[in-house]
Design a binder for these strands. Structure first.
Lengths: 220, 220
DNA sequence: ACCTGAACACCGTTCAAGT
DNA sequence: ACCTGAACACCGTTCAAGT
């Protein structure tokens, strides 16, 4: 099962002239438009090229295959999510553990529910082929920042910040995805908004000691 | 976006003779074999039919389209997972909340990690088309049982058992999926095994009162 | 009652030919 | 240096013809 390497997913060549930069951009936005308007199942190279106003051949000059195009879309989507989380993290640095937890969850939920159609489309797109490499890389980048954020907490010391950061991402990301992917009813999102902060807060509290060094009694 | 209704996903007709029952079964197992041996991307009707020793036409007599075939596979997979969880639930009924939580998490992790290749293949398959209907139905069935299980806890009373059951499924399911889908490194699974029980236990403890009616002080 | 497989529409991808 | 679009291999699905 020879999977394309990440390198193979990058655009085939960089545009050297102004018009080709326009072409690349047109293809990219056309792909997003088709995705949102017609769904993953109807996202075909022909349709994208038509919408972008170029021929299929032109598309293949910049994206070696369809996957590269999808990869670019997902990369943009994930990138903006990570950026928003990094920004939130820097604003939360040094606050109390509960505030940090609540802030992260709120940011995550805001990003994902602000454009539910877009989020769902991206989940579907991501599933179409192997983006585990990208998700892993970006996930690790975020995990690293979250780890330091947890360490910065003013009132408590997370015992294993690395594991906690990893779990926070897995739990927040997974739970929200689970709900959004299966219909995303308003009632379900409401439960998520009410309960996910509790999940993360309780987890972090139970995995930390107060700053003085005295252990909190674990609720068993 | 006309999605096929669940009814349209069912086998087209029931086999009326012994040999056709054999044919249906052969197609079903052939599909699983192709999926595991060649991956989702190479799971084609032609290949499945060839492996099953029938023609494509025959396949279409029992499965109205490829999706119906994939649906059958996923249904079997999810069904066995739910069954295992229901069994675990009945064994845990009436125990302490922490035991219930740990038992559920352990069962879930065991099922999912016991056959990682199969789990990953199913995630990929599930993503190929819309199974939200099925996932929702089975999820609700499980949620209902978990709700009663939480209520049965001997030492504590979960304040909102319905929401807690929903979240438990979202968190367990989502977190494990997140990790398995992106490579499932041994180190990551180890973190999951160590931390996921803490996540669920801490959440349930913080969302419950002890049976006497006295409130546990929330760790804020 | 069940099975076959050529035929059809559509997809991703290529490449000789153009400007 | 960039673009075109007919051509190719392959896919899901159908249906007239067989047993």
């Amino acid at each position: 099962m020879a999977r394309p390497t990440p390198a193979a997913l990058k655009p085939r060549k960089s545009p050297r002239q102004a018009r080709s930069a326009v072409t690349v951009e047109a293809i990219h936005t056309a792909a997003i438009q088709v995705l949102l308007a017609e769904g993953v199942g109807r996202l075909t190279t022909t349709r994208v090229a038509e919408r972008a106003g170029v021929s299929v051949g032109t598309m293949y000059q910049y994206y070696p295959h369809k996957e590269a195009l999808m990869f670019a879309i997902i990369q943009g989507h994930i990138g903006s999510i990570i950026d928003a989380m990094l920004e939130a993290a820097s604003a939360l640095s040094g606050q109390a553990l509960a505030q940090i937890s609540d802030g992260l969850v709120a940011t995550w939920l805001d990003i994902k529910t602000e454009d539910i159609a877009g989020s769902r489309a991206t989940y579907g797109l991501a599933a179409e082929f192997d983006i585990s490499e990208l998700v892993r890389r970006e996930g690790e980048r975020l995990a690293c920042v979250l780890e330091n954020l947890l360490i910065s907490a003013s009132d408590a010391q997370v015992v294993n910040p690395q594991a906690a950061a990893f779990m926070l991402i897995a739990v927040m990301g997974g739970a929200v995805r689970n709900v959004l992917e299966q219909g995303a009813l308003d009632a379900e999102i409401a439960i998520l908004r009410a309960e996910l902060p509790l999940v993360c807060r309780a987890y972090l509290a139970s995995s930390s000691r107060i700053r003085s060094g005295l252990a909190i009694v674990r609720q068993a």
